[in-house]
Amino acid sequence: MDKVIAWNVGAGQLSARWRSEAGLPPPASLEQVDDTLSADAAWRLLAAGQALLWRGDWVNARHLLQALARRAERRINRPGKVPATAAEAFAAHRMRQGERAGLLARLLVEVGGDYRVPLRRAQNVVEPCCAAWGEPDGEASLVSLRELLALISAHEWRKKGVFVSAVGGRIHPHYGVFSPVRGEYVELVARAPLPCPPADCLAFDVGTGSGVLAAVLARRGVGRVVATDLAPRALACAGENLARLGLAARVECCLADLFPAGEADLVVCNPPWLPAQPTSPVEYAVYDPDSRMLRGFLAGLAAHLRQNGEGWLILSDLAEHLGLRSRQELLDWIAAAGLTVSERLDTRPQHPKSRAADDPLHAARAAEITSLWRLRRA
């Protein structure tokens, strides 16, 4: 059942559906505000736990959010105790991120039942909302302004797409589906030797997301690819990308928790790289609580490999540099699953954060290596 939030206006009361992709609960207290509210006053209210429903000008709301974000950076990131370990630094970094996101998420706007924002100078958000939420049903919603702006930004990414040389075209990520902006892991899949002649090869792409790795395999001539995901959004995204690239006839997309039925010559998986709790839909591609997907893939791989088949595990060692998982743990999981490592292909990340000295996790990111582990039955 949809959650409903109600608030008082004068002697009356209004209500609307509560939307939160991050799964935040409806605010316990809500106050309507407008352009007369200063950034300092808004900060004090938000810091005290008050949610604010903006009824002023749309452009001014965006300016207010920017001013609040600057205050959050200054006050939440104030110098404190220096973490003793990389794991402590990561925990502190995630805590600060969570505090900042939780505070800024309390600035709300209304989205009408037709997906129009009833504010002066409001931009048209109908198309991004339809893409993320489906067709409007006539019921108004309250949503975090920060989340709505992220939805709009994601829709621009979806329209523009990301050029991936290994597929010879663009991948268009949907809202909540991770964008393949880190091309180094895609290139590993593009150049690793296939375990059998491409035309005779059946491959599984476990946790396909945008479909980029399924597309790489199809471009390499793999005869048939079965791409799985638990998220309907991801499957819709993958299907759309594969159709646009002219590869839909070679790839079947299906809803599954990890593996489809049967055995394959090649099983590819790019699980989330960090064992931590995600706080938004797109973070599920980065954070894997208790390494659930990684361990599940390894534990089930042998049962889904044909004779002489291979599993390709694409994984960064960032978790190791952050003290979240050791290399020995990974090797123990591989061995316990009845698997052996036939080869490991390594590459260094090229993304900007790997070179950003002001990043709180810079030391770990600078040492990071992304690997494709070629696994076989022991």
Results as ranks from 00 to 15, higher is better:
1 M>F: 07
5 I>K: 10
15 S>H: 14
22 A>E: 14
22 A>Y: 04
25 P>F: 06
26 P>A: 15
27 P>H: 08
32 Q>I: 06
33 V>G: 08
37 L>Q: 09
41 A>S: 14
48 A>P: 04
48 A>E: 13
49 G>Q: 05
50 Q>L: 12
61 A>C: 05
63 H>R: 14
64 L>Q: 10
72 A>E: 11
78 R>Q: 13
86 A>G: 02
91 A>T: 12
95 M>H: 13
96 R>I: 02
96 R>D: 09
100 R>E: 14
100 R>L: 13
105 A>T: 03
106 R>E: 03
106 R>W: 04
110 E>V: 13
112 G>I: 09
117 V>A: 06
132 A>R: 14
134 G>F: 05
134 G>T: 09
140 A>N: 11
142 L>D: 07
142 L>M: 11
145 L>F: 08
146 R>L: 15
148 L>Y: 00
154 A>D: 15
158 R>M: 14
162 V>W: 02
174 H>L: 07
174 H>K: 03
175 Y>S: 15
178 F>H: 03
179 S>N: 04
183 G>W: 09
183 G>T: 14
188 L>P: 09
189 V>P: 08
192 A>R: 01
193 P>S: 07
194 L>Y: 10
195 P>A: 05
202 L>N: 01
220 R>T: 02
221 G>Y: 10
230 L>A: 14
232 P>A: 06
238 A>V: 01
239 G>Q: 12
242 L>P: 06
243 A>H: 04
243 A>V: 01
248 A>Y: 03
252 E>Y: 04
255 L>T: 03
262 G>C: 10
264 A>C: 05
274 L>K: 08
276 A>G: 12
278 P>E: 08
279 T>W: 02
279 T>E: 14
281 P>Q: 02
286 V>G: 00
293 M>S: 06
294 L>I: 02
295 R>E: 12
300 G>K: 02
301 L>A: 15
316 S>H: 00
317 D>C: 07
319 A>G: 15
323 G>N: 10
325 R>P: 06
328 Q>D: 13
331 L>D: 14
334 I>V: 15
335 A>H: 10
337 A>Q: 03
340 T>W: 00
341 V>W: 00
343 E>N: 13
347 T>P: 01
348 R>C: 07
348 R>V: 14
349 P>W: 00
352 P>L: 07
354 S>D: 00
357 A>Y: 06
362 H>L: 03
370 T>R: 00
371 S>A: 12
372 L>D: 10
374 R>F: 06
374 R>W: 01
